[in-house]
């Protein structure tokens, strides 16, 4: 019960230069197989750091002495509220600060995109000796500050409004589980601060067409009372876009893809089971028009159980 309440945390993978390309990036439980119970609210801060020295210019892997190591530090707040046992609402809001260790370009900072998800556990049945659950998740994110997308690789985000749908399946047998999901992200066009730009041809507009994205996520490991430890693998790919040309700068509508592997854990404090610690680390194993980033995140989450309170309050007069 407790385990189910606070079970699930988090996978805020912030990677610079294409930080949040999908809703999978940050926030709580939008991509795992667990739900908050009705009227329970799990909330907490997270902090993270990621960096890269090498990046892919098209498919060519290179470094850049005029950037050195590019890093992003991120602080965010995330939460998950149980509307019902089968329907959760989640949110995440990161503040991001970027920096290049060499060269003259100034790092950027600011609040990035507010992300919201609705997570619906559509099906859950015993199958064999385990339990299969199916989920449908809808997400939306939009920028909450007027940051500049057209300053890659130091931009804190890409400015598009993203609408995502995700189908997810989770199978647990004993203390071991596996979760797979696929996400389609519809990205809005963005407006940049100029009246013409070049992709593979000249465009006379301040509007940039952003290709949609697809993402896949696989996670598997141990999940039981008070502890989750899992390995993760994921891939995100834009469905279109163009390669960075030789020695050019990146552009928001580049063809971007990335494959990462990582490790997540969540641990409920034995002395206070409503409090949990979470952390993850990841590294990039393949990519295109993106930095080869590695990073880690850590957070503390607290579960407020409004339903208990209500029950107590309502039952008090009777006693």
């Amino acid at each position: 019960m407790k385990q189910k309440l606070i079970s699930n945390i988090i996978k805020p993978v912030i990677f610079i230069w294409l930080l949040v390309i999908t809703g999978a990036v940050s926030a709580q439980t939008d991509i795992d197989g667990l739900m908050m119970e009705k009227n329970a609210f799990c909330v907490g801060p997270m902090a993270g750091y990621s960096s890269w020295k090498n990046y892919w210019e098209g498919t060519l892997k290179r470094d850049n002495a005029n950037l050195g190591t590019v890093s992003a530090t991120q602080f965010s707040i995330m939460g998950n509220y149980g509307l019902t046992n089968k329907l959760n609402i989640l949110f995440g809001l990161p503040y991001i600060k970027t920096k290049a260790s060499a060269g003259q370009l100034k790092g950027q900072k600011g609040l990035q995109d507010l992300a919201l998800w609705v997570k619906w556990k559509a099906y859950s049945e015993k199958i064999g000796s385990g339990r299969l659950s199916l989920f449908l998740i809808g997400g939306y994110s939009l920028p909450v500050s007027d940051y500049t997308a057209d300053f890659l690789p130091l931009s804190i985000g890409l400015e598009s409004k993203n609408l995502s749908v995700r189908g997810m399946a989770d199978y647990q047998r004993g203390s071991w589980f596996a979760t797979v999901s696929g996400t389609y992200v519809r990205r809005s066009n963005i407006k940049i601060d100029r009246d013409a730009y070049y992709t593979t041809e000249m465009h006379y507009s301040n509007e940039v067409e952003m290709p949609d994205m697809a993402a896949f996520n696989f996670r598997s490991g141990y999940r039981d009372k008070g502890l989750i430890a899992e390995a993760t693998a994921d891939n995100m790919t834009t469905l279109g876009g163009f390669d960075i040309t030789r020695n050019n700068m990146p552009f928001p509508s580049n063809k971007m893809s990335v494959t990462r592997i990582g490790f997540n854990f969540k641990y409920d404090m034995p002395f206070h089971p409503n409090l949990s610690l979470t952390g993850n680390a990841f590294t990039t194993v393949a990519g295109r028009n993106m930095g080869q980033s590695s990073g880690f995140n850590a957070g503390i989450f607290y579960v407020l159980d409004f339903s208990k309170k209500e029950r107590k309050n309502s039952s008090n007069p009777k006693n």
């Binding site: 066009n189 006379y204 509007e207 067409e209």
Partner: peptide, 23 residues
């Protein structure tokens, strides 16, 4: 509620064109 959410999401997905007007 579920059905209307799914409906709203599908409409949003396909309603807005990405074509750009080039001056």
């Amino acid at each position: 509620l579920h059905i209307s959410i799914i409906f709203a999401v599908s409409v949003l997905f396909y309603s807005c064109s990405k074509d750009i007007t080039e001056t």
